[in-house]
Design a protein around this nucleic acid. Structure first.
Lengths: 181, 181
DNA sequence: ACACCATTGTGAAATTCTTCACAAAACTAA
DNA sequence: TTAGTTTTGTGAAGAATTTCACAATGGTGT
C-alpha cells in the first residue's frame, strides 16, 4: 500500500505519512510502497501495543461499568485486574471475574498485582487523591475521566477524557458555522 | 486576573493566552489584567455555551446509559429530548422522563423535536448509517463514540471519542519513557 | 496634576510543522 | 541487460504557530 493510499484512509497527505513514519525509521520499499502486515507489526511494537497491560478501575459507577464491559479494551490487551469503589454498598459486589474492593486496600493491591494503568472514573473531588495514591504506589499511567486537571509528576503520563468539553467543542463549531454564513 | 495567572492555571504561557484572546477581541485592561466574570461571560457567548442544546442519544447500551445519567451534561445546558435503540427489548423502556424509541421514528422525531445534536453510542457497524440519517434529518453536530471515522458532509461537525485510542496513547507514552531512560 | 507601576495588545523574530520536489531505489518487462 | 515505471525518504521551501519584546494604556499613590 502506498503512502498515497494510507493518506487517503487517514485523512492526511502522502508527504505527511512518509515524514511521520520516517521519524521512527524506514518502513517502505521504493517503487512498491509499504507492506501492511509489516507496518502494523512495527508500529504496534513502537506504540507499545504488542503486549498486554494490567489495568485497575477506580470508581464503580455507571461510567466505570460501561468501561469495564467495553469489549474493545479486553480485545486490545487491556486486562482488568482490580476494581475499587468507596461505596460500602458496592464493595464486595462481583463484576465478572472481579470483586469490587475498598480503597483501603488500594496501595497494597496495586503493588501485589503489579498494576500499570489506572482508570479514574469517579467524581472530581476524589480524583486528585486517588491519582496521587496511584502514583505513589508506582502506577505508570492514568486515564482520567474526572473533569479536573490532575496534578501528578511529569514522569507519569495522564490522558484526560472530558465528555462535557467534547460537546462544548461541537457547540462552538456550530456557532462558528452560523457566523460565517 | 493577569494573563500570567491564567496561563499558570491553563498549562500554557502568558503570551499564548493574550494572543488567543486577541483573536476574538480585546478583553483586558492594561496594568490590571482581565475581569474573570466578564471574561467568562464573553467566552461563553463566543463558544456558544450561553444557551441550551437539544440532544438525542442513539444507542441505549451501557455507554449510552452512563452518558444519559451523567449530571454534568444536564447542568451545562445539554437537554436529552430523545433516546433511540434498535433492540426490541429496550424500545418502550422508560429512562427518566424519556422513553426509548425505535429507529423507525428517527427522522420524524429529530425534526419534530428540533434536535440539534446527536450522540452516537452504538457499535461501529450501525454508526455510519445513523450518522447519515441524522445529517439528512438536519442535525447540526455529532458526538461519536463508535470507533470508526464517520463520513459526513463537512458542514456537520463531528467530534470523536475513541476510548481505546486514549489507552493506547498512554501505552505509547509509557513505552517511550522507558526508551529515554 | 504628575510620576510610577503593572499589564495588555500586537508587530517582529524565532520556532515548529507541513508541503514540495527530486535523487535514489526497487521492481517489471522486453 | 537495459530502459521504463513507481514510490520512498528527505533536504529545502513555505506556512503556521509560538514566543519575544515593547509602546500604549489605565490605574494608583502622592
Amino acid at each position: 500500500m502506498s503512502s498515497e493510499e494510507l493518506a487517503a484512509r487517514g485523512q492526511t497527505t502522502a508527504a505527511q505519512v512518509r515524514k511521520d513514519l520516517s521519524h521512527f525509521g524506514s518502513f517502505g520499499k521504493r517503487g512498491l510502497g509499504y507492506s501492511v502486515d509489516q507496518l502494523r507489526d512495527r508500529l504496534r511494537s513502537i506504540l507499545g501495543l504488542d503486549r498486554s497491560w494490567r489495568v485497575a478501575l477506580v470508581g464503580a459507577g455507571r461510567i466505570g461499568l460501561a468501561l469495564f464491559e467495553y469489549p474493545a479494551f479486553r480485545s486490545r490487551g487491556y486486562d482488568w485486574v482490580a476494581i475499587f469503589d468507596s461505596d460500602p454498598e458496592k464493595i464486595g459486589q462481583a463484576w465478572g471475574d472481579q470483586v469490587v474492593r475498598s480503597p483501603d486496600e488500594f496501595e497494597k493491591v496495586l503493588q501485589d498485582l503489579d498494576i500499570e494503568l489506572v482508570i479514574l472514573a469517579l467524581p472530581a473531588d476524589g480524583a486528585q487523591e486517588m491519582a496521587m495514591r496511584a502514583v505513589d504506589a508506582g502506577v505508570r499511567g492514568i486515564l482520567n475521566f474526572a473533569p479536573i486537571r490532575l496534578n501528578v509528576p511529569p514522569k507519569v503520563p495522564v490522558e484526560d477524557v472530558n465528555l462535557v468539553m467534547e460537546l462544548e467543542a461541537l457547540s462552538f463549531q456550530i456557532t462558528q458555522g452560523e457566523r460565517d454564513a
